[in-house]
C-alpha cells in the first residue's frame, strides 16, 4: 500500500515536471534576474561597468517622481477604465439578454470589438481624434490646435475611452455568459414574489453574477496597469508626461535610457503592486461575493 502511494506520487511529480521546468525558465528565472538587475546602478555613459548598490537603488527609484508620477497616471487610468468597462459591458449584456427578433445581430455587434487589436483600435481613434481632419474635432467645432490627445487634462481620459471601447467586446461576452448562468426560475420566483425589475436586478442578478464581476475587476486592474500599446501609438506618454503610465515609463527607461537597473526596480515594483492589489481584492471583495454551491 505504501509503495503504491510512493509510486503514484512519483508519477504525479514526473507529470508536473515539464510545466514546472517551463515556469522556471520563462517565469521564475526572469523574475529573479529582474530583482537582481535592480541592485546594479547603470552609469549614465555607455560602456562603463554597472555597479552593485544593493537595495539602495530600490529606495531611491521608488521615492522618485520618475516612478511616482507614472504610478499615479496608471492608477487614474485603472480608475477610469475598470468600473466603466464593467458597468457598460453589463448594461449591454442586460439589453442583449432578452429574446427579441434580431437580437443576434446586436449580440454580434456588441461583442465585435473583441476582434480588434490595440493597434487597430488606436488607429481608428487616432483618426477620429485628429485635430484637423478628425470627426471629433468637427463635432465639437474646434479644429486645429493640439487636439484632445495633446490636451494635458483630456489626453488620459481619451486614451482610457479607447481602452474601454476596445475591451467592451470582452466585457460584454463575459457579462452575457454570467447572465445566462442565472437560473430563469429564480428570476420568475422574484417576479411572482413582487420584486420590481430593479429589485430583481440588484437583489438577485447582481449577487449571483458577483463572481464574474469580481473576476472582471481583477483582470481589468491587471491589464489596466499593463497598458502600453494605446499609449505608445496615441500619445507616446505625452503631452508632457500626462499619459506616461508605469509600463510605458519602464519601456522608456529601459530602451531609450538603457537604464536596466532603474527599469528593473520599476518592473519589480509593478509586479508587487499587482500581487498586493489582487490579494487585497480577494480579501475584501471576496466576502461580498457569492459562489454557487457555497453554503
Amino acid at each position: 500500500m505504501r509503495r503504491r502511494a510512493v509510486r503514484e506520487a512519483a508519477l504525479a511529480y514526473a507529470m508536473v515536471l515539464p510545466a514546472f521546468a517551463a515556469f522556471v525558465v520563462f517565469v521564475f528565472y526572469p523574475l529573479a534576474k529582474t530583482v537582481d538587475l535592480g541592485m546594479y546602478r547603470v552609469p549614465p555613459f555607455p560602456g562603463l561597468p554597472s555597479k552593485f548598490v544593493g537595495l539602495s537603488q530600490y529606495a531611491s527609484v521608488l521615492s522618485h517622481s520618475q516612478f511616482l508620477a507614472p504610478l499615479w497616471n496608471s492608477t487614474l487610468f485603472v480608475l477610469f477604465t475598470v468600473p466603466t468597462g464593467i458597468v457598460i459591458g453589463l448594461a449591454m449584456a442586460v439589453v442583449a439578454h432578452r429574446e427579441l427578433v434580431g437580437i443576434r445581430v446586436f449580440r454580434t455587434i456588441f461583442s465585435s470589438t473583441i476582434a480588434t487589436s490595440v493597434a487597430v483600435a488606436s488607429v481608428i481613434f487616432f483618426t477620429l481624434l485628429d485635430p484637423t481632419t478628425g470627426l471629433f474635432a468637427y463635432w465639437i467645432g474646434q479644429r486645429g490646435g493640439t487636439g484632445i490627445l495633446g490636451n494635458p487634462t483630456w489626453a488620459l481620459p481619451a486614451v482610457a475611452v479607447v481602452s474601454i471601447w476596445q475591451n467592451l467586446g470582452f466585457s460584454f461576452i463575459l457579462m452575457s455568459a454570467a447572465l445566462a448562468s442565472v437560473p430563469d426560475d429564480l428570476m420568475e420566483a422574484a417576479a411572482v414574489d413582487g420584486a420590481s425589475g430593479s429589485r430583481r436586478f440588484f437583489r438577485v442578478t447582481v449577487p449571483l453574477i458577483s463572481p464574474t464581476l469580481f473576476f472582471a475587476a481583477i483582470i481589468g486592474v491587471i491589464s489596466g496597469f499593463q497598458t502600453f500599446g494605446q499609449i505608445d501609438l496615441l500619445t507616446a506618454g505625452g503631452p508632457n508626461g500626462h499619459t506616461n503610465v508605469l509600463l510605458y515609463q519602464i519601456y522608456t527607461v529601459f530602451y531609450e535610457n538603457a537604464d536596466t537597473g532603474t527599469a528593473s526596480v520599476m518592473a519589480v515594483a509593478l509586479f508587487v503592486i499587482l500581487v498586493v492589489l489582487t490579494l487585497v481584492q480577494f480579501a475584501f471583495v471576496h466576502r461580498k461575493v457569492f459562489y454557487a454551491g457555497e453554503g
Binding site: P183, D185, L186, A190, D193, G194, A195, S196, R199, F290
Partner: peptide, 30 residues
C-alpha cells in the same frame, strides 16, 4: 408581481445567496 399569487416551483427556486430568513422575507421586503 401585482397578481398577489404565490408560486412554489419544482426546483424550489430559493435565492442561494440569501439566508433562509431573507428568503422568506423577500416577498415582504418587495
Amino acid at each position: 408581481k401585482d397578481r398577489d399569487v404565490a408560486m412554489v416551483f419544482q426546483s424550489y427556486a430559493l435565492y442561494p445567496h440569501l439566508s433562509v430568513r431573507k428568503n422568506i422575507e423577500f416577498p415582504l421586503r418587495s
